[in-house]
Simulated assay, not measured.
Amino acid sequence: MMLYILKANVDTSLLKEKLNRSSASYKFLNLYGKNLLLVWPDQYAKDIVDDSIEIAVNVRKSYVLSSNDWKKEPTIVRVKDTEIGGNKIVVAAGPCAVESEEQLSTAAKGIKRAGASLLRGGAYKPRTSPYSFQGLGEEGVKLLRKVGDEVGLPIVTEIMDTRDTEIFKKYVDMVQIGARNAQNFSLLKEVGKIGKPVLLKRGMGNTVEEWLQASEYILLEGNGNVVLCERGIRTFEKSTRFTIDIGGMIAAKMMTHLPICADPSHPAGRRELVHSLALASVAAGADMLLIEVHPEPEKALSDSEQQLTIESFEVLMNRIRSLAQALGRGL
C-alpha cells in the first residue's frame, strides 16, 4: 500500500487522470490536517509520479492510516474539553445501563466528584439473551445528554445500528463501538462519517492487527479521532469473565499513533478484581479507562457483579492518582 502526502493547495486533476488510466484503486482524503492519497495494490502504486506529491510512504502493513509508520507523533483525541492521548489519564465512568434519571444523576454526580472526565452509560444494550434488559434506547441517550449537561461531563455511549446515526449526531459527544460490532464494517463506515470521536472496542475474538484494521474503516472516512479500547478477549480461562490482554494493549500502543483505552470492568466480571486490572492497565501505559459505576450495583439491570459502588470508585480514583503521579502522569 502506498500512502502519499500531498502538497497543500495544489491541483490534483492531472494526478486523478493518471490514476484513472491505471488499474490502481485509490482514495483521496484529509486526515489530521493533511491531504492524503492512498493507492493500492503495490505494483500500480509505486509508478505514480506527480508534482502534487510531497512525500511517498510505502506502508507494509494491513493497517495504513492507523500505523505510526507515517504519523510519528501520538494523536490527541478531543472530546469537548477533554484530551485523550496526552500526559493526563482520562477516566470515563458510569453505569453499564441507563435505567432511570435518578440512577444516572446519582452516578454522574459521584463520578464527577471523584474526578472522572466523561460520563459513560449504555442506552442500546447488546445482550446475549433477547430476554435480558435491552436498554432504554433513544430515551436513554436523551437522559445521558440531560444529566451530562447538568453535571458538566461529556457523554460516551454505544451505537448498535446504522439507523440510529442521527440520534448520535444530535446528542452524543463520543460514539462507542462495542466488542460485538467491532467488525461490523457497515457500522464502522457510518460512524466514521458522523465525524464524532469514536471509542472502538476490540472484538472478543480479534487479534491486535484485526483491531487496528477495524479502526482503518473509520479513519478511511476522514475521521481520525479514534481511541482503541482493550476490553478483554475470550480464552480458555474461566476465573475471569474475559482475559484482559495487557500485552496486546502494549503492542498496539507501539504499533499505532492512536490513544489506547482499557476497560477493566468487563474482563474482571467481578467488582473485587476491577481495581487491580485498572491499575495494571495504567501501569502498562493506558491513556484512558472505562469503568462501570452504579449507585446500587446489586439492583442493576445488567452486569451487576462487575459494577463498582460510588464509594469504591472514589477509592480507585485515589489509587490511580497516586500511580499516575509515580509514572509522571496526571489524572
Rank of each mutant, 00 (worst) to 15 (best):
M2P: 06
M2A: 05
Y4E: 10
Y4S: 08
L6Q: 09
K7Q: 02
V10T: 11
V10L: 14
L15A: 10
K16G: 14
K18I: 14
L19P: 09
N20Y: 09
R21Q: 15
S22E: 04
A24R: 04
S25T: 14
K27S: 11
F28E: 13
L31D: 15
G33I: 12
G33S: 09
K34Q: 12
K34I: 13
L37W: 07
V39M: 01
D47V: 00
I48Q: 06
D50M: 09
S52R: 05
I53W: 12
I55Y: 06
N58W: 12
V59A: 04
W70S: 02
W70N: 06
K71M: 11
I76F: 13
I76L: 14
V77K: 02
R78S: 14
R78P: 15
K80P: 10
D81N: 15
E83C: 03
G85F: 00
N87S: 01
V91Q: 15
A92F: 04
P95F: 02
A97L: 03
V98F: 08
S100V: 07
T106A: 13
R113F: 06
S117Y: 08
S117P: 11
L118F: 11
K125V: 00
K125S: 02
R127I: 04
T128F: 02
T128P: 04
F133Q: 08
F133R: 10
Q134S: 15
L136P: 12
L136I: 06
G137W: 13
E138I: 15
E138H: 11
G148R: 12
V151F: 14
P154A: 12
I155C: 02
I155W: 02
T157A: 02
T157N: 00
M160R: 10
T162P: 13
R163I: 09
T165Q: 13
E166L: 14
I167Y: 12
K169D: 14
K169I: 07
K169V: 10
K170S: 11
D173M: 05
M174R: 00
M174F: 03
V175T: 00
S186A: 15
L188S: 07
E190F: 12
V191K: 02
K196A: 00
P197L: 01
K201N: 04
N206L: 07
N206Q: 10
V208A: 07
E210V: 00
W211C: 04
S215R: 02
E216R: 01
I218H: 09
L219A: 15
L228A: 05
C229G: 08
K238D: 06
G247M: 13
G248L: 08
G248Q: 13
M249F: 14
I250S: 11
I250E: 11
A252N: 00
T256G: 04
T256E: 03
P259G: 00
P259A: 01
A262D: 07
H266S: 05
G269Q: 00
R270D: 15
E272Y: 11
V274T: 11
S276W: 05
L277I: 15
L277C: 14
A286Y: 12
L289G: 10
L290D: 06
E296G: 07
K299P: 01
S302H: 03
S304F: 06
S304G: 06
S304A: 13
E311M: 13
S312T: 10
F313S: 07
V315Q: 11
L316K: 08
M317H: 03
I320Q: 09
A324H: 08
Q325T: 13
Q325L: 08
A326Y: 15
L327P: 09
G328A: 13
R329Y: 05
G330R: 06
G330D: 10
